[in-house]
């Protein structure tokens, strides 16, 4: 079975300009050669810390920003090569849900119109049919049809995220990029939204690229997981493997650092030291080497490639 989404060697570089002439003096390699695939009805978790490039990947995959290089195939068709008019029908298949339900909804538009907007843009149905469809969408995400006439500020954070999800579902997409969709929500509300996303996947065989810094949420929702560090994927495996037998020292460090909501577990006090380096001037060799407890001479000079160490388990480390 070929994957629904296949990303190969995706790159996004940003110029750094200086001086009065705004001459380009360097480049930030925000995304530096990332490859992965998402199958139908599957959730790929993309985890990493701030500045690792995970959100840039999400946007570049949808061509909300133009990738510098690389291919993104939707059902085998490379969308990075398409012109705007050819891309448009494919956009119906691919949607996004953002982190912040406060800034991603226009405060001056009724939520019913927000959710119906994609239908209008793509010229689907007449007014009455669109209204019916919006009412169905509201029901699907657990909102009441009567709320269609309200404005975003009349909703709580969790409800707004339901509105965002309804908007993303309007065109019956097959693939949704969910960029930190529960990070801005209170814990008791997070569970509601996570359950909703999982229910929708079961009902409609949706595929998600689930971007998050929260490993617990990813362990719960994802089938496979890619770990990013400074623009590159450092480990890629199915969920059970990644969380039980992590191979990359960075994955290990991330898992060890997550505080566990169980006071009977005594945390081993061995944390990686140092800050996440700036992506503008990443360390030589393996980007993780200055913080890695196992780093050797080779790690400082030679950049490790992502290679398969077991079926479906890839890691970029000289030592594993």
């Amino acid at each position: 079975m070929s994957p629904l989404i296949e990303v190969s060697d995706l790159r996004k570089y940003y110029p750094i300009r200086k001086g009065v002439l705004r001459r380009q003096v360097a480049q930030v390699h925000a995304v530096d050669g990332v490859s992965f695939a998402v199958n139908e009805a599957e959730t790929l978790g993309l985890v990493g810390e701030s500045g690792c490039g995970k959100s840039t990947v999400g946007r570049a995959v949808l061509r909300l920003i133009e990738p510098t290089a690389g291919a993104v195939k939707l059902r085998g068709r490379d969308i990075t090569q398409l012109g705007k008019s050819d891309l448009r029908p494919l956009r119906r298949e691919m949607q996004i849900v953002f982190q912040d339900p406060f800034s991603s909804l226009n405060p001056r538009i009724r939520v019913g119109d927000i959710v119906g907007e994609p239908l209008k843009v793509h010229g689907i149905g007449d007014r009455r049919q669109r209204e019916e469809k919006v009412a169905q969408l509201f029901a699907r995400v657990g909102l009441r049809a009567a709320q269609m006439r309200n404005y975003p500020h009349q909703f709580s954070g969790g409800q707004r995220q339901r509105v965002s999800i309804a908007r993303a579902l309007a065109l019956d997409p097959s693939f949704i990029v969910a960029d930190e969709p529960v990070s801005a929500l209170d814990v008791s509300i997070q569970a509601q939204v996570i359950n909703l996303l999982m229910d929708l996947q079961r009902e409609s065989r949706l595929s998600y690229l689930f971007i998050s810094h929260n490993l617990a949420v990813v362990e719960h929702i994802a089938h496979r997981v890619a770990v990013m560090y400074l623009g590159r994927i450092v480990e890629y495996a199915d969920k059970a493997t990644l969380f039980t037998r992590p191979l990359h020292p960075y994955t290990e460090a991330l898992l060890a650092a997550v505080p566990m909501p169980d006071p009977t577990l005594k945390r081993q006090k061995r944390h990686v030291s140092g800050d996440v380096p700036s992506p503008i001037s990443p360390p030589s060799g393996c980007h993780f080497h200055p913080r890695c407890p196992y780093a050797e001479a080779r790690c400082r000079v030679e950049s490790p490639v992502l290679r398969e160490v077991a079926t479906g388990h890839q890691v970029a480390c000289h030592l594993r």
């Binding site: 996570i194 719960h220 566990m260």
Partner: peptide, 12 residues
């Protein structure tokens, strides 16, 4: 209501 890291490892 909170998802936990470690379910796969049997820690939770």
């Amino acid at each position: 209501s909170i998802p936990r890291v470690g379910t796969a490892r049997g820690l939770a």
